[in-house]
Every structure is written in structure tokens, then in C-alpha cells.
Nucleic acid binder design. Structure first.
Lengths: 228, 228
DNA sequence: GGGTTATAGATTGTATACAATGAAGCAGAA
DNA sequence: TTCTGCTTCATTGTATACAATCTATAACCC
């Protein structure tokens, strides 16, 4: 059918944006950090123009905050921000559920199940970077299946921001049960298998509430240690 | 209480973005139009840098499409795009309804009612520009009341895109009943007054479905005339 | 000392120059 | 004719220079 995949020119500004994005998500750039353009210029080996343009992109994604004539700062999330993020994520994922519940087939169920099993394996191997990405891939699969451009874009933005706060959980809430996520995903998959929309929605709410709580606890913990 | 309101420096790129945004929404820039940077440079009296940066912002808002080394083009909406826009708008407005239904008070009901009456007046005066902005203000009031940053941002993006296709309706579907919108708004307001969430959601679905249909009809009409 | 004003340094905002890319048209060969 | 390759031109991508702005520090006055 399709022999070749689309070729897309990738501009410098997008590469720069991706690098900064990853640095924020992985916590190498911390909240409130001042992002100085020339510093990135030197580290990335490009001129200021693509750096500036990348920062504009990231500002639109709410990963950085730009103050005119002052500069760019890594976004710091408040408790209210975290609550807003998760409430929006539930809204979007439940919308996705409505769209895809009658579109998924056996192949999809198998693919989703494979992701769950992979994640299980990675947990046992203590490879938490892959655990995170597989976890993400599970949710992304459902969102992508919606084929709804705005849903996909908005969800990705929200999730990137959540990822940026999740590193807080990793630092603060050191020892939480990774297998809970496995059970969560299985519950969701079962909901799709039996075409029970309400069950899926309830699961989404429950799961996101739990992760939200973990994030909030990590946040307060970090804030109290920052004061001392 | 607060004597002064916050002063916010406004950069050139934001002013440029706003001008282009309005031009697209008002239909002065038409879908598929090639936006050449130097042309805007001359018309706006600024250099290419802020123009470029403004175009990056608008690309993130999906009002223009940027192809590397080719340039920026005003977004052209397909039928699927329009359907996606309205389905997302319903999702967001229903989410807003959940958030604000128990927060609105008599003052809010009065404000919303004033907006409905103003719109009624503007219709009778045939001042359709004010009709549009008052219509928008009604919905915006409800969204803003949610105080949910992501909801507000996502909704504004969606609505800007809808506005960009609504001018199609104005051109294609010349004579539709402006008073329908008045009735719609009254239905929604009544729903809030009696705290009936399901009724509000159903109204939102119904209203957006109707406007979506009008947009789709206008789109097919314009496409058929474009061929001839 | 408390408070205001100058000054210096760093950083961002804007303008412009140069490099790279792609589209269109034309010429020539199969 | 139809395809290929070349050339030109318009336009975007990137780099850099200059202007405007802000922060902080120090000098100054009362």
C-alpha cells in the first residue's frame, strides 16, 4: 500500500524545543530556573534565533513562563496547577473513551495487553525509565485511537506538564507501588473489552485522583524541605 | 481594595500575532493564503523577527500551518476539522458546566441575562459585529467562571478556530435566524438557575450540533462554488 | 540609617545581513 | 512528447549586531 513514509523537514527550533522539553520533563531543568538564551546557544551550538523560537513554543505549551524583558523561567507548579492538570486529563481521557469504545477491536486489546505485560516486565527488571515510557504508551494508544487532532494535542500538552511534576513524586514519594499502575491498566482494558463506558470513566477518575494525591504530597514535602 | 490593575509589557510579537489572528478570524486572510513575512513586515512597520515569532505562536494555535522552508499558510478547515472542533467545544463547555454549576450566584445570572438582552438589542439594530461579540461574551463568561487555566486556554483556541470558519457561514448561509441563539442562551441560563447539569449538557450538545451543521453546509456550498 | 538617584552589567527585544532551501520555467536529450 | 537537469528567483532559516530594558550595587542626600 504505502511504500514510503512521509518525510518531514525538522527545523532547528523544533530540535532545540525538544531538548529543552526533555530536560524539563526529566527534571534537569528545575522549576523557577532562569533559562538564559546565550547559555543554551553555547551548549547547543546554535545561534540565539532558534533558541528564542524554541522558547516561544515551550511558552505556548506552558512548560516555561516568559516575562518580557526579563527572560524565560521553568514553570513552577502550584497545588492548584496540579489539581487543574489532573481534572483536565480526566476530562480528555473520558472524552477519548467515548470516541474509541466502539472502535477498538481484538487487535487493539492484544496490543494494549502487550503493553501491560511489557510494563510488568520492566518493573521486575527495575528499569523505571522504560516503565514510565510504557505506562505512557498505554494511555497514548487510547488517545491516538481517537484520531481527534485537538484531543491528541491537548492531551499531550497536559501529559508533558504532568511528567514535569512527576519527577517531584520520584524525588519525594520514593517508594510507591509500581504494580498499582498495572492493575489500573488492566481495569481500563477490561472496561473496553466489555464496552462499559461508565466503568472506564470511573476508573479514569479514580486513577488520576490517586496520582494527583501522590503529586500533591510530593509537592508539599518538597516545599517543606526547601524551607529548611 | 485593589487600586491599580496589573501592568503587563506587551511585546511586538504579541501585537503582531493579535493583528494576524483578527485578520484570519474576520476572514480578511483566507484559508490557504500564503503569509509572506516581508509583506507583513512592510504592512506592520516592524522587522521580520517579531513577525516570524508571531507566526510561530499562531502555528501553535492551529490558525496557520507552517511548512519548513516553504512558509506559513492560513489554515484550511475540512469537514472533519469542523466536526472535531465542535465535539471538543462541547466537551470543554460541559466540563465548564460541571465546574461552575454550583458556583454561580444571582449576580452571575443577572450578568448573563444582561448579555442575552444586549444581544437581542443588537440583532434588532442589525449590528452583527456586536451580536457576534456579545454571543461570544456569554459563553466566555461561563468558561471564565471556571477559573480553570487549561480549560480557558483550550476553549479560546477552539473558539478562535471556530470563529475562523464562522465567516464561512456568514458568506454561505446568508440568512439564518439570529434569534435562535437568544433562545439557546436562555435555555442554558435556565439550566444553571435550576441546577440541572444534564439539561445544560444536552443543550450544549444540541446547540453546537446545529452550528456545526450550518458550518458544514456553508463549507460544502463554498467548495462547490469554488469549483465552478 | 532610610530612602532616593546614578551607574554598570547582564539579558532580552529588534533589526538586518547572509546562507540554505524549494518552486518554476526553460532547454536539451531520449 | 516526456523526462531530466540546470538556472533563476522568491522566500524562509540562521547568525549576528545593535537598541531597549531590567537588576543590583553603590553613591548620595536628608
Amino acid at each position: 500500500m504505502t511504500v514510503f513514509s512521509q518525510i518531514r523537514a525538522v527545523t532547528l527550533r523544533e530540535q532545540v524545543a525538544e531538548q529543552i522539553r526533555i530536560a524539563i520533563i526529566e527534571g534537569r531543568l528545575k522549576p523557577k530556573d532562569h533559562i538564559v538564551e546565550v547559555t543554551l546557544t553555547e551548549q547547543l551550538g546554535v545561534s540565539r534565533t532558534p533558541v528564542r523560537e524554541a522558547l516561544i513554543i515551550l511558552e505556548r505549551e506552558s512548560l516555561v513562563v516568559s516575562i518580557p524583558n526579563r527572560g524565560c523561567f521553568v514553570r513552577a507548579f502550584t497545588a492548584d496547577d496540579i489539581r487543574a492538570l489532573f481534572s483536565m486529563r480526566v476530562t480528555l481521557e473520558n472524552f477519548a473513551a467515548e470516541l474509541v469504545i466502539n472502535r477498538l477491536g481484538h487487535q487493539d486489546y492484544d496490543n494494549l495487553n502487550d503493553l501491560i505485560e511489557s510494563q510488568n516486565l520492566f518493573i521486575q527488571q527495575n528499569d523505571f525509565k522504560k516503565v514510565r515510557s510504557t505506562d505512557m504508551a498505554f494511555h497514548q494508544y487510547l488517545i491516538a485511537a481517537s484520531n481527534h487532532p485537538h484531543l491528541i494535542r491537548n492531551w499531550q500538552e497536559i501529559v508533558a506538564q504532568i511528567a514535569a511534576v512527576l519527577y517531584l513524586r520520584a524525588e519525594g514519594h520514593t517508594n510507591y507501588d509500581e504494580f498499582l499502575a498495572i492493575q489500573d491498566h488492566q481495569q481500563i482494558l477490561d472496561g473496553y473489552r466489555v464496552h462499559n463506558l461508565d466503568r472506564i470513566k470511573a476508573e479514569n477518575r479514580r486513577i488520576n485522583k490517586r496520582v494527583e494525591t501522590e503529586c500533591l504530597m510530593a509537592l508539599t514535602r518538597l516545599q517543606s524541605t526547601a524551607q529548611s
